[in-house]
Amino acid sequence: SDEEKKVRDQAKRLGVNTEQLLKWARRQGDEDLVRIVERLLRS
Protein backbone atom coordinates (compact mmCIF):
# COMPACT_ATOMS: atom_id res chain seq x y z
CA SER A 1 0.00 0.00 0.00
CA ASP A 2 0.97 3.65 -0.30
CA GLU A 3 1.13 3.95 3.48
CA GLU A 4 3.51 1.02 3.76
CA LYS A 5 5.76 2.46 1.06
CA LYS A 6 5.82 5.76 2.96
CA VAL A 7 6.82 3.91 6.12
CA ARG A 8 9.64 2.08 4.34
CA ASP A 9 10.86 5.36 2.85
CA GLN A 10 10.79 7.00 6.26
CA ALA A 11 12.77 4.13 7.79
CA LYS A 12 15.33 4.50 5.02
CA ARG A 13 15.59 8.25 5.62
CA LEU A 14 16.10 7.70 9.33
CA GLY A 15 18.56 4.90 8.65
CA VAL A 16 16.65 2.43 10.83
CA ASN A 17 15.05 -0.95 10.35
CA THR A 18 11.35 -1.61 10.84
CA GLU A 19 11.66 -2.62 14.52
CA GLN A 20 13.61 0.55 15.30
CA LEU A 21 11.06 2.61 13.39
CA LEU A 22 8.31 1.08 15.55
CA LYS A 23 10.13 2.19 18.72
CA TRP A 24 10.61 5.65 17.23
CA ALA A 25 6.93 5.91 16.27
CA ARG A 26 5.89 4.92 19.80
CA ARG A 27 8.16 7.60 21.27
CA GLN A 28 6.58 10.14 18.91
CA GLY A 29 3.15 8.98 20.07
CA ASP A 30 2.19 8.55 16.41
CA GLU A 31 -0.60 5.97 16.65
CA ASP A 32 -1.20 5.80 12.89
CA LEU A 33 2.45 5.15 12.17
CA VAL A 34 2.65 2.57 14.97
CA ARG A 35 -0.30 0.70 13.44
CA ILE A 36 1.18 0.73 9.94
CA VAL A 37 4.62 -0.41 11.14
CA GLU A 38 3.08 -3.21 13.20
CA ARG A 39 1.21 -4.36 10.11
CA LEU A 40 4.46 -4.32 8.13
CA LEU A 41 6.20 -6.39 10.80
CA ARG A 42 3.44 -9.00 10.72
CA SER A 43 3.29 -9.28 6.94
Rank of each mutant, 00 (worst) to 15 (best):
L14G: 02
G29A: 06
V16M: 15
E31V: 11
V7H: 05
E3S: 12
Q20I: 06
S43G: 08
E38K: 12
Q28G: 01
L33Q: 00
E19F: 12
K5Q: 08
V37R: 00
K23H: 11
K23F: 11
S1T: 10
Q10Y: 14
E19H: 12
Q10G: 05
S1L: 09
R26K: 11
L41E: 00
G15A: 05
T18F: 15
D9C: 15
E19R: 12
K6Y: 13
L40H: 02
G15V: 08
E38P: 00
E38Y: 05
K5W: 07
I36G: 01
Q10C: 15
R27H: 10
E3W: 14
A25S: 01
E31D: 10
I36Q: 04
V34F: 06
Q20L: 09
V37A: 02
L14N: 02
K23M: 13
R26A: 03
I36V: 05
G29E: 02
G15P: 03
L21G: 00
R8P: 05
E31K: 12
Q20T: 08
N17E: 03
T18Q: 06
S43T: 11
S43P: 07
R39D: 03
R13T: 04
Q28V: 10
L14D: 02
E19W: 14
E4W: 14
A11P: 04
D30A: 14
V37N: 00
R42T: 03
L14I: 04
K5G: 05
K5D: 06
R42F: 10
R26H: 03
T18I: 15
N17S: 13
G29C: 15
E3Q: 09
V7I: 10
A25P: 01
L21P: 00
L40T: 01
S1K: 10
N17Q: 04
E3I: 14
G29K: 07
D30N: 12
R27D: 15
T18V: 15
V37M: 05
T18A: 13
L22T: 00
V34M: 06
D2S: 09
G29Q: 06
R8D: 04
E31P: 12
R35H: 02
L40R: 01
V16N: 06
L22R: 02
V34A: 05
D32V: 12
E38I: 13
V16P: 03
R39K: 07
D2K: 10
R26D: 02
E38G: 02
I36S: 02
D2W: 12
E3L: 14
L41R: 02
I36K: 05
R27S: 15
K23G: 03
E4P: 08
K12Q: 06
W24K: 02
R35M: 04
A25K: 01
G29N: 05
E31S: 11
L41H: 01
L21R: 00
D9T: 08
D2A: 09
R13L: 10
V34Y: 05
R39V: 04
G29S: 04
L40A: 02
R42N: 04
E4H: 10
I36T: 03
D32C: 15
E38N: 03
R8L: 13
V16L: 15
V16A: 04
S43E: 10
Q20D: 08
K6E: 05
R27A: 15
R27V: 11
R42G: 05
S43D: 07
L14F: 07
E38F: 05
D32S: 09
E3A: 13
L33R: 00
D9K: 08
R39C: 15
Q10T: 12
W24M: 03
E4V: 09
V34S: 02
K12P: 02
K23Q: 13
K5E: 07
L14R: 03
K5T: 06
R42I: 04
L21D: 00
K5F: 07
L14C: 15
L22K: 01
K6D: 07
R27G: 13
W24Y: 03
V16H: 09
L33K: 00
R8E: 07
L14Q: 03
S43Y: 14
V34G: 01
R8G: 06
Q10I: 15
D9M: 12
D2C: 15
V7L: 09
S43N: 11
R42S: 08
K12V: 06
D30C: 15
K12A: 07
L41Y: 02
R26G: 02
R42V: 05
V7K: 06
I36E: 02
T18G: 07
K23C: 15
V16I: 13
G29M: 11
E38D: 02
G29H: 05
D9I: 10
R35V: 04
R26L: 09
